[in-house]
Amino acid sequence: MKTITIKIKRMRSQALLPAYMSRHAAGMDLYACPDSIMVLEPGSRAVIPTGIAVAIPPGYEGQVRPRSGLALHRGVTLVNAPGTIDADYRGEIGIILINHGSETFMVSPGDRIAQLVIAPVRQAVLELVENLDETGRNDGGFGHTGC
């Protein structure tokens, strides 16, 4: 398995560093680092601070993804899943949580709230053309193969 080094900085002294929870986990758990307990009422959303910043190398991105257990058991997920941390971003990572559940959700310092996956990226060069190649699908869109 190929590894890369990601530099990480604590932006808040009490911040917990991301961690893989199993040997072959794709994502590292990200921890909440608010100053106090944050309350997410049903239907509400908020940016939850993590207290960390990272230096992702060029050619990679950080994908912030929901935790499946929170989504299943509490109805809490990310508004912008997956969120992207670009290689040139150096600010504190904030997680935009939304409560789709029917009960109030409390976010405490140290709660695992999302996952961070480091993935390779490639930038594209766009070429303006008059016509695109034909395919069997062409412009068949939403639900064109059935539900």
Rank of each mutant, 00 (worst) to 15 (best):
A26T: 12
M28I: 09
D29V: 04
L30P: 03
L30W: 01
Y31G: 07
A32Q: 03
A32V: 03
P34R: 01
P34N: 06
D35F: 13
M38K: 09
V39G: 06
V39Q: 11
V39I: 15
P42K: 12
P42S: 15
G43Q: 11
S44I: 00
S44N: 15
R45I: 06
R45E: 15
R45K: 15
I48H: 07
I48K: 03
P49F: 05
P49Y: 05
P49T: 06
G51I: 10
G51T: 09
I52S: 10
I52P: 13
I52K: 03
A55N: 14
P57I: 00
P57T: 10
P58W: 02
P58R: 05
P58Y: 08
G59W: 02
Y60T: 04
Y60R: 06
E61P: 00
E61A: 13
G62E: 09
R65V: 07
P66H: 08
R67L: 08
S68H: 10
A71R: 09
A71T: 15
A71L: 07
G75D: 00
V76Q: 09
V76F: 05
T77E: 05
T77L: 00
N80V: 06
P82K: 07
G83M: 13
G83S: 12
I85V: 14
D86K: 01
D86E: 03
D88W: 08
D88F: 10
G91F: 10
E92F: 04
I93H: 12
G94L: 07
I96P: 01
I96V: 15
I98T: 14
H100N: 15
H100S: 10
H100C: 13
E103T: 12
E103L: 10
M106Q: 10
V107E: 00
S108I: 00
G110V: 11
G110R: 08
D111K: 01
R112T: 04
I113P: 00
L116W: 01
L116D: 02
V117F: 04
I118S: 05
A119T: 11
A119F: 02
P120R: 13
V121F: 13
Q123W: 10
E127D: 09
V129T: 13
N131V: 13
N131A: 07
D133L: 05
E134Y: 05
T135P: 02
T135K: 03
T135N: 02
G136H: 03
G136E: 15
G136V: 10
G136N: 12
R137A: 01
R137K: 12
